[in-house]
């Protein structure tokens, strides 16, 4: 036990504490000034806003994918089940160059979209796409086991009580998936907020328009403005801590709610 805490502190706590200590170089007003400056606010807004939107897409599409994978039999199902994890296993830099290549104006998907007047690469849409990509596995993988475990008898019971399929799905099945859905959503969201490698290639990196917060940290570093970089980092760190903390609480709550486990 003591060993765990020591080791955790060496690997995680000390580095993070260093980050917080560094921000103490700043007065509160300075810190506030940096965090609320237009550029920072916009970068945070872009990172959090687009991540939220991407996580929403992943919530919906992830649920559809899970449903198809768990409930239906179709050719190639096992293969599709396996490839869900690609965004997780594929290095972010590789994902970045690949997505950019794909969605650039000359790319396989970029060209037809450009015909329609939709520009993806180097716009906020590009960031959005990259964030969807990296978030896919999270909703699918958190919901999948729960849906698999779900007792079919509940559905039968609902049906025998006169519920139609629509009602069964939305009143009976979905509610019991909610903790898992929320967890997957939060994980996808947290991952997208911090994502750097796959996004910077495809983002236009225009200040206030398509500049994500992690990039702003890197920019501040290369301007020798460590305090600014750490201030933004602290805000993001606290946010991810809160998200993950909420997820873990959620899971414990879900466990106690379903004592059968």
């Amino acid at each position: 036990m003591g060993l765990t805490l020591t080791w955790l502190s060496v690997i995680i706590l000390i580095p993070l504490a260093g980050l917080f200590l560094k921000t103490f170089d700043l007065s509160l007003e300075q810190f506030w000034g940096i965090v609320t400056s237009r550029r920072t606010l916009n970068a945070l807004k872009i990172s959090f806003g687009l991540s939220f939107a991407a996580a929403c897409v992943n919530l919906v599409m992830g649920t559809i994918v899970v449903w198809a994978l768990v409930r239906y039999r179709f050719p190639g199902r096992r293969l599709f089940d396996a490839i869900v994890d690609i965004p997780f296993a594929l290095p972010t830099a590789v994902a970045g160059v690949a997505l950019t290549q794909l969605f650039a104006q000359k790319g396989w998907l970029g060209a037809p979209l450009a015909e329609l007047g939709i520009k993806v690469a180097f716009t906020p849409i590009g960031i959005f796409i990259a964030m969807i990509f990296i978030g896919i596995p999270f909703v699918v993988r958190t919901v999948q086991p729960v849906l698999l475990d779900l007792d079919v008898e509940i559905e039968e019971a609902a049906a025998s009580l006169g519920a139609n399929r629509w009602h069964t799905v939305f009143r009976v099945i979905l509610p019991s998936l909610i903790p898992a859905l929320l967890t997957g959503f939060a994980l996808a969201f947290a991952r997208a907020v911090g994502e750097y490698g796959s996004v910077i290639f495809i983002a236009g990196n225009l200040p206030n328009v398509s500049e994500i917060a992690p990039l702003l940290i890197v920019i501040r570093l290369s301007e020798f403005r460590y305090a600014d970089a750490t201030a933004i980092a602290v805000v993001m760190l606290v946010a991810s801590f809160l998200i993950i903390f909420a997820v873990n609480r959620l899971q414990r709550w879900a466990q106690t709610r379903l004592p059968a486990h």
């Binding site: 947290a190 992690p214 940290i217 980092a233 991810s240 993950i244």
Partner: peptide, 10 residues
Amino acid sequence: DLPFSVSPVI
């Protein structure tokens, strides 16, 4: 879990 969700840049 934190390193998992914290931005790699951080």
